[in-house]
Simulated assay, not measured.
Amino acid sequence: MSSPSTLAVISQSGESLSFFNNNTGELTGRLENLPAEPHDLAYDSPRNLLYVSHTYSHGHYFAHGSICNTISIIDATTKKVTDTIDLSPFGGPHGLSISPDNSILYATVETGFPTGGLVGIDLASRAVVKSIPCDGRAHWFTLTPDGKKAYTSNMTSPFVSVLDLEREQLAKKIPVTGSNQGAVSRDGRFAYFPTPSAQMKLEVPPTIEVVDTSTDEIVKTVPFDEGILAVHVTARRKILVAVYRLEEGASAAALKPRPGRLVVLDATSLERVGEVEVGKFPLALKSSPDGLTGYVANVFGGTVTVVDLAEMAVRRTIEVDTTPRADKAFHQGAHGMALI
């Protein structure tokens, strides 16, 4: 597999998609004036298309405007929007992931069910062919490598939802104190969920809950001293952990972030093997196919930190969108990422 040549990054507040040379960090293209407000990003390699979720008219999970119901489709070569997918009656699409066989685009949705759930869009017909309620306001999710199960992180709900994608039903609830973006190990044996969610209960000690996917029971708890926004597993059996840090006097209403950290754990021992400082509020994580490079989207900083995972050193910091807009209450300048 050749190395990805391009890093694509969404600016939520900027309503844009930027393209960077993956070897140099140079800006190579920028698509502006996307529908408000783009959040997550997924790359469809066989079709060379990018899918962008539009969740709210403005704001974020805890404070936002009206719910959107659109996914934009972008040609990765021409860098132009070619079509949209209307998810009605479902709304609030956020997390995106493509099935292992590249046939279905999955998206969490916050409305259309009594609460929230997961929908599956056939990539040939672009029709919704699966709809699975999760009994919570789904925001993030992660798939097992075989494509048979999904786990939704419902942010403020006291559980992670286990969804059977073949039977299209809620299979189980795993008790947690709210949760952010989780991940599944490359062999599919374990799932990892950071808890609690930011702004839910800052006084609750943060942890990563380790779940045995054969039983969907928590088998280990890894304590942390600061909050966690996301975890991601690399091809080299390392767990990337996006840790956020707050200024003194921060509260659930006013987070006041300061530069965060990327912490790396060994996936077998769950011991720390390194860490580096990154930007403000590291929200999303990616890694290169060879597992040697990590990418951290710092949503309030408007940057992406590119990390050499072998040397545990920052290779470069890419500016995506660091200038707040006067018409936006929150500056969220780097969100979803994709490697092309």
Rank of each mutant, 00 (worst) to 15 (best):
L202K: 10
E203I: 07
L202S: 11
F193S: 08
T213F: 04
K173L: 10
P196N: 06
R189A: 13
T195Q: 13
K220M: 08
N154K: 12
L163E: 06
E168D: 10
A250D: 00
G188K: 08
T213M: 07
E209P: 00
L165N: 05
L246D: 01
A250M: 02
Y192I: 04
S179N: 03
R236L: 11
H232A: 11
V210N: 01
K172I: 02
A191H: 01
M155R: 14
I228H: 04
E203D: 15
A183C: 03
I208Q: 06
E168A: 14
F224T: 05
R237H: 12
V211W: 02
K201N: 15
P205D: 10
I208W: 06
T213N: 02
T221W: 03
T152Q: 09
T221L: 05
I239S: 06
E226C: 07
E168S: 14
A235L: 00
A235D: 07
G178A: 10
T177S: 11
T152Y: 10
L246V: 12
E209D: 11
V233T: 12
L170S: 09
L163K: 10
T156S: 15
F159D: 08
F159H: 14
K201L: 11
T213Q: 02
V233Y: 00
L170A: 08
L165V: 08
V219S: 07
D225R: 10
A235Y: 00
D216P: 03
M155I: 15
T221S: 12
P196D: 04
G227M: 12
V184R: 02
F224Y: 14
T234H: 02
I174S: 04
S161K: 08
E247M: 12
A230M: 09
M200A: 10
K220R: 15
R186N: 06
E248M: 04
F190C: 01
A191W: 04
V160I: 15
D164E: 09
P175Y: 07
K220C: 02
S185C: 01
A183V: 03
L170W: 02
M200T: 12
